[in-house]
Every structure is written in structure tokens, then in C-alpha cells.
């Protein structure tokens, strides 16, 4: 396996009784990148992350994390991994500060300056008992604990689901800084703006299988651009043109979506009608995900339009 990979997973299978959770999942995270890990609810993201931590044992498949085996080398690997679970459960009668110190010490020590800085930046009150924290505050405790001690790999399972927009922005800065220091991040998230801003590459999974993987640019190329255009004369003859979808026109205004590959050709044809104004929107991640999350996700890229 390549040494520049922080995580290499190939053909991963995991079943719980008769329920198949992972069905041949592939995932490659390169060292030093932020890798987005996406998929609908119940598609197997958390199971994968728990396997990467050695909390669950894979049924079959190739698996390497930081050059080690997550099950048999769990303890050694955990010295270099920090984890923020999706559902943060804390000891109800310990304060947030106590939890941060405890987890940090178990990971090999807390840098008090860094700890204070993180608490300040995430605006956390460390003296409250865990049972009185809101969901967002419990998540902050887990984030501070994960970021306050040195680690090479951050496994973040929907870490911002409970954070307010201000803290969300702070979190994005923290991740950017972490990568700047040479760390690798695997980020599972449903917040598309966050993924778009932070991630170098993404992997989309569905029903325990990888359906798409690559850089955001590569993925965009495979999807459609939406175009609104005002012309001197009404546009006609585009409805059935290859690569054009949802064509609608009212007098001299038309709107439609077009495959990336056909964009140039279609615009050339519209020019014949005399363009007065044109706005085009790049494919949104949302449209990309909706397509993969939907019932026929994983099929050929542009066969149908998601609802």
C-alpha cells in the first residue's frame, strides 16, 4: 500500500447478524488532506469510522490506518489519532474541563496553553457538569479534547451537527490550521458548505458501498450546470438536444440544465438566437449529493433528475 495514504480501505465488509452494514466499501485518504466522507443516514459512515478505530472488527477486506492494522495495533494507533464521535455521551457528573483533561492525559498529555486557547475560541464553559451541557456544548468538549493533544489523524464523525454558525466557522478555521500543521482529517458531514470549503477530496457511500470518490473538481465535471438566458429571439430546437434537461422557455427567456461536456456546444447554438443576458450556475454539491443519495444513486451520472 502507498506510504502517502493515511487510510486505505478496500472491499470492506461488516454485518451485524443478518443486517449488512458495509458491503465492499473502498476509501482512500491521502496524508495531509481533508477528506470528506459523505452518504445518507444509515449508509455506514459511523460503522466505518468505528472499524478504523478498532472498536468494531471488520468481517473481511483490506484495511490500513497510518500503516497499521486498526484492530491489532489499536493502542499504538490511538496515540496518533484523535476522534470526535457523532453522538457525544459524557460522564454526567464530570465537568467538561475534567473530561478534556482525562481524555487528553490518556492520549499522552494536554498542552495547557492550547487547551485554554481552544476553550476560549469555542466559547466553552469548562466548569459545568456534563449533564447540563446542550448537544452543541458536548460536541465542543469532544472537539477540544481531540484538538488539544497532538495527533496525526483526526477522525471527525459529524462534528458540527450541533454547533451554531459562529462556532461552525471557528471549527473550519481549526481544521484548516490542523491541516496546515500536516495533520490528516477524515470528516464525515452533512453540511455541504462545510465540505465544499474544507475538503480536498470526497468519498460518497451508499448502502455500505462507495459510489463516488475523487476531488470536488472531478466530481463537478460529471454533473450539470444550470443556465438562464435572455435572447433576442425565442430559443427553439434545444429541448431534444443531447445533454440538455428541463428546458423551459417563456418568450425570450429560457432556462435549462446541461451536462458539463455539452456546455460549449449548447452555448454555441444559443448564440445564434442573440444573447442579451446569461447567468450560469456551477453544479452545486447539493445536486451532486442528491443524485447519489437518491433511490437510483450509483447509476450512470446524468440519467435522471433528482426531485
Amino acid at each position: 500500500m502507498s506510504t502517502s495514504s493515511a487510510i486505505t480501505v478496500a472491499g470492506l465488509h461488516k454485518s451485524f447478524g443478518s443486517t449488512v452494514a458495509l458491503d465492499g466499501l473502498d476509501l482512500e485518504v491521502r496524508a495531509g488532506e481533508v477528506h470528506g466522507f459523505l452518504g445518507p443516514n444509515g449508509s455506514g459512515k459511523s460503522v466505518t469510522i468505528r472499524i478504523l478505530l478498532g472498536l468494531l472488527r471488520a468481517d473481511s477486506g483490506q484495511l490500513e490506518v497510518l500503516g497499521g492494522d486498526p484492530w491489532s495495533d489499536a493502542v499504538e494507533l490511538h496515540r496518533r489519532i484523535a476522534y470526535v464521535p457523532g453522538e457525544v455521551n459524557l460522564w454526567r457528573n464530570l465537568s467538561g474541563g475534567e473530561v478534556i483533561d482525562l481524555l487528553g492525559r490518556m492520549r499522552g498529555g494536554v498542552d495547557p496553553v492550547r487547551r485554554a486557547e481552544l476553550i476560549e475560541r469555542l466559547d466553552l464553559d469548562p466548569s459545568k457538569k456534563s449533564r447540563t451541557y446542550s448537544k452543541g456544548n458536548r460536541q465542543k468538549v469532544a472537539l477540544v479534547a481531540a484538538l488539544a493533544s497532538p495527533s496525526d489523524l483526526l477522525l471527525l464523525d459529524e462534528p458540527t451537527a450541533g454547533l451554531d454558525p459562529l462556532m461552525e466557522a471557528e471549527f473550519q478555521d481549526l481544521v484548516t490550521e490542523a491541516v496546515g500543521e500536516g495533520r490528516t482529517v477524515l470528516l464525515s458531514s452533512h453540511i455541504l458548505a462545510e465540505v465544499e470549503k474544507l475538503c480536498d477530496r470526497v468519498t460518497i457511500i451508499r448502502k455500505g458501498r462507495t459510489v463516488e470518490s475523487g476531488s470536488l473538481g472531478e466530481l463537478r465535471h460529471m454533473t450539470r450546470t444550470s443556465v438562464r438566458v435572455e435572447t433576442e429571439r425565442p430559443v427553439h430546437g434545444l429541448q431534444d438536444a443531447p445533454g440538455v434537461y428541463d428546458f423551459a422557455s417563456r418568450a425570450t427567456e429560457s432556462s435549462f440544465e446541461v451536462d458539463g461536456e455539452q456546455l460549449g456546444e449548447v452555448l454555441g447554438r444559443i448564440a445564434e438566437f442573440g444573447i442579451v443576458a446569461l447567468t450560469s450556475q456551477p453544479p452545486t454539491l447539493e445536486s451532486l449529493f442528491l443524485r447519489h443519495y437518491g433511490a437510483d444513486g450509483g447509476g450512470p451520472p446524468v440519467q435522471e433528475r433528482p426531485a
Binding site: 478498532g54 484523535a82 492520549r107 499522552g108
Partner: peptide
């Protein structure tokens, strides 16, 4: 989980 994700 949080505990066993540390080197314990």
C-alpha cells in the same frame, strides 16, 4: 468509545 479511542 471516547476512552477506547485513546491509547488505552
Amino acid at each position: 468509545e471516547a476512552l477506547l479511542a485513546t491509547p488505552t
